[in-house]
Design a protein around this nucleic acid. Sequence first.
DNA 1: AACACTTCCGAAAACGTTTTCGTGTTGAAA
DNA 2: TTTCAACACGAAAACGTTTTCGGAAGTGTT
Lengths: 340, 340
Amino acid sequence: MKKKLTLKQIAKELDVSVSTVSKALRDSVEISEDTRQKIKAFAKLYNYKPNNIALSLKNKKTKTIGVIIPEIVHHFFTTVISGIEQVANERGYNVIIVMSNNSFDKEVLNMEMLANGSTDGFILSVAKETQQKGDYHHLLEVINQGMPLVMFDRVIDEIECDKVIIDDTIGAKEAVQHLIDIQCRNIALITTVDYVSVGKLRTQGYLEALEENGMQANEELILKVEDFDHSEEEIKKFLSGKKIDGVFAVNEHFAIYAVKAFNENGLKVPDDVSVVGFTNGELSKLFIPSLTTVSQHGAEMGAQAARLLIKKLETEEGEDGPYETIIVETSLIQRNSTKR
Amino acid sequence: MKKKLTLKQIAKELDVSVSTVSKALRDSVEISEDTRQKIKAFAKLYNYKPNNIALSLKNKKTKTIGVIIPEIVHHFFTTVISGIEQVANERGYNVIIVMSNNSFDKEVLNMEMLANGSTDGFILSVAKETQQKGDYHHLLEVINQGMPLVMFDRVIDEIECDKVIIDDTIGAKEAVQHLIDIQCRNIALITTVDYVSVGKLRTQGYLEALEENGMQANEELILKVEDFDHSEEEIKKFLSGKKIDGVFAVNEHFAIYAVKAFNENGLKVPDDVSVVGFTNGELSKLFIPSLTTVSQHGAEMGAQAARLLIKKLETEEGEDGPYETIIVETSLIQRNSTKR
DNA sequence: AACACTTCCGAAAACGTTTTCGTGTTGAAA
DNA sequence: TTTCAACACGAAAACGTTTTCGGAAGTGTT
């Protein structure tokens, strides 16, 4: 078990100083062609690789970016991570991923842990609990220390930083408009409680679409799911006995549960009722019927977030350029859960 | 933008030496109660947190573990990561995740990058391409440097290290046995090409189950999918026109494509034909019909892998204990794609 | 012979910690 | 008054780099 080779060991072995070795390896002109060759040959032979930790300490840069997500077992986030990974790696950055599990405390803890030197900056989608609490001290602190922060998907308006979002309102509006276009007249909405920002915005899109078409919103047709874990039953109960010919659900699962509920009630999707979901995951693609959804282009969002962050990291400390907010387009993917 | 507080700054501010500050914060008895209080109060007030990088350099430990997976957009791997995260965080470790995208080169690159000080050890599921090439120099090198390595799921027999696997053969055998038990007599197998170790093992389980029941394996009923991206068509073509009353597929996707193919041919699952998949993902749960699958318990595998790794990390450098191989049980989850 | 210039290399500081080893001051015992 | 232990603290080394600065040879110019 040979330990890692260091400059010092090379120096001793070749009977020169550490500084000479360092310079030789970095092709400094200060070192004669002769010794330079000798040192490089030796280094290559024994496969010398500089120690990243030492470099980080010296340069005060770690070349890694921290990603904090609420949960990974969710197709959307995995696509975002893919996007981040890709551009990060292209530019020589590592990606370190932690999960908050939607817990405020874990978000704070993880952030503090990474902020102490492990990371140059953050990409973050805030935990549900954090949105609910409205306590953002950890975010402010990180920003205050000069660490760039990019928020995506679930962002916080009050915090000034770069952001990558989709236009939830417009995405939802288009989805509902599509339902209207195919002659749905009693369109239900299955959404989340209001403190989840995306739920709120998508609800707003739903309402706007109705209004623009001169249709009356009906409180009876709006379900705000309280508890994700029991959403299936909630949805089933909500849907039964109502006269509905279209459903807009703010995520994949709600949409699927809706379809299942209809099936059990003897209603055919899309013949009797059309369903549109949000987030274009595997589920939507493979389900029968395949689901018409609003696609969020997660990989694209991740890539943009990473680009934004790296830009901030590599811009001269000089002055924080203005903060940007990138809105990535959503697109409606028509499949078999809505009739043509 | 206040920069991070360091020991040196505290020392200057309070007019003591750096060592005194360090000792005070670590509750050394060498420091008088008086100054200790003063220093701690100051540190708390200004929210001092030690710099991880400096600690890493000093201790030659990073307290982070590197996870290398072939792809993240795959429910099984995300559950594994969850498991790893959880036990790692409990023990104060960070988790850094990189993807090989099933590419040999990326696997090597990422590994080298992390091996240079960023990580104390690795948890890895090897890339498809690596298995195909049979080039393991990067793994050997890492082990040689004294960095513990735990492989999971897709492991390499020739490499000596801790491993966490499922018994693919037995899992597959049980699945096929179940099909036999419910009176299937013409059971097809949809698997991968042989160099993917799990595909090979599951194929073996299929064959063993048949043999134990005195049934003849029929080459005609075995499909080895070459190209994942075009698996749907391959499967459709394979399945059409054959007399089949049961299918065992080595993953979720293949199983779903099989069901779809049957549907299109007017065959009912499970009435006319039963289907069993492998890997218990969201897809299997929510699909209609919901799929009977062999569950791999990904979170459990991740947790075990992390435990194994941390044990190696924290055991006295003294001697490498013997390598362990943990086999986590699979379980057959019966749902609606197989008749009762 | 005196001087200036290159060329090539090493010493040392710096990044932020922890830890070992002194060392000066006190108070008490002899 | 001397001696010694206990106490409280500081200096310095170490982890592995990079970089600035200074200096010893060697070369060339008057």
